[in-house]
Computed example of a mutant assay.
Amino acid sequence: MSIVGWMIIFCEVMFWVVILLGLVTRYIFKRKSLGLFLLALTPVIDVILLLTAGFDLYQGESATLAHAIAAVYIGVSLSFGKSMIAWADQRFQYYVTKQGEKPRKRYGMDYAKHYFKSWGRHLLAYIIGVGILVGLIFWIGDPARTEALMGITRIWSLALAIDLVISITFFIWPPKPKGISSSI
């Protein structure tokens, strides 16, 4: 595996380690400012990954699937990072500290709207990630060295379209709580 592949794994692990440390510091040790600082470090992890991938390509390496996934990771992290931290924060408060509201399951139109909002975040992640990929393609300027980047762009475009279709279906057939059937 390339250095970029290992950095993706390292950055994903560090993302969750920093979040966990931030939550423990915030709620267990009652150090809210330090906890907030640790949670605010998550974008730094993205910068480290971006610099690693960029430096690797600058050194003359051909773009690989790992470089493309690094761009996807950065887009997803920037777009979904705040909501992932809020998700973890709510569950940590409820399940670990026994405070806060119990996380609720969504059903019906509430679920459909929430999923569509998530699709909007997916679109933002796509714009950021594909922007990075296109930037790398133009920066390298050699189609033979950037074929993997274009391949991920096409796959992600298809995934975004499929996610939109799924999002729309939830407005047509919204999920219901278990045990409740529709009477047609």
Rank of each mutant, 00 (worst) to 15 (best):
M1K: 08
V4N: 00
M7T: 08
I8S: 00
I9W: 11
I9M: 08
F10L: 08
F10H: 08
E12H: 06
E12F: 12
E12I: 09
V13P: 05
M14Q: 10
F15Q: 03
V17K: 07
V17G: 07
V17E: 04
V17T: 09
V17N: 06
I19R: 03
L20E: 11
G22I: 03
T25D: 12
Y27Q: 06
I28T: 01
I28P: 01
F29A: 15
F29T: 13
K30P: 14
R31L: 15
K32P: 14
S33F: 14
S33M: 15
L34Q: 09
L34E: 13
L34G: 07
L36Y: 13
A40T: 03
L41G: 04
V44E: 04
D46Q: 07
V47C: 07
I48L: 11
L49A: 03
L50Y: 07
L50W: 08
L51A: 14
L51D: 12
F55C: 05
F55S: 11
F55G: 06
Y58L: 10
S62C: 09
S62V: 12
S62M: 12
A63K: 02
T64P: 05
I69V: 12
I69M: 09
A70P: 04
A71I: 00
V76H: 02
S77F: 12
L78I: 10
G81K: 06
G81I: 07
K82Q: 13
S83T: 12
M84F: 15
I85Y: 04
A88D: 06
Q90T: 10
F92L: 01
Q93S: 14
Q93G: 13
Q93W: 09
Y94L: 07
V96C: 07
K98D: 15
K105T: 15
R106F: 00
R106C: 00
M109V: 07
D110N: 12
D110I: 06
Y111F: 01
A112D: 00
A112R: 00
K113L: 05
Y115C: 02
F116W: 02
K117Y: 02
K117S: 04
G120C: 01
L123D: 03
L123M: 15
L123N: 04
Y126E: 13
I127F: 09
G131Y: 11
I132V: 03
L133Y: 06
V134T: 15
V134P: 13
G135D: 09
L136N: 05
W139C: 03
D142P: 09
P143T: 08
R145Q: 13
E147W: 12
E147M: 14
E147G: 11
A148P: 10
L149D: 01
L149Q: 05
G151P: 06
G151M: 10
T153I: 14
T153D: 10
W156Y: 15
L158Y: 12
L160G: 08
D163M: 08
I166D: 00
T169E: 01
F170H: 03
F170T: 00
F170Y: 11
I172H: 02
P174I: 02
K176Y: 09
P177S: 04
I180H: 12
S183N: 14
S183W: 14
I184F: 10
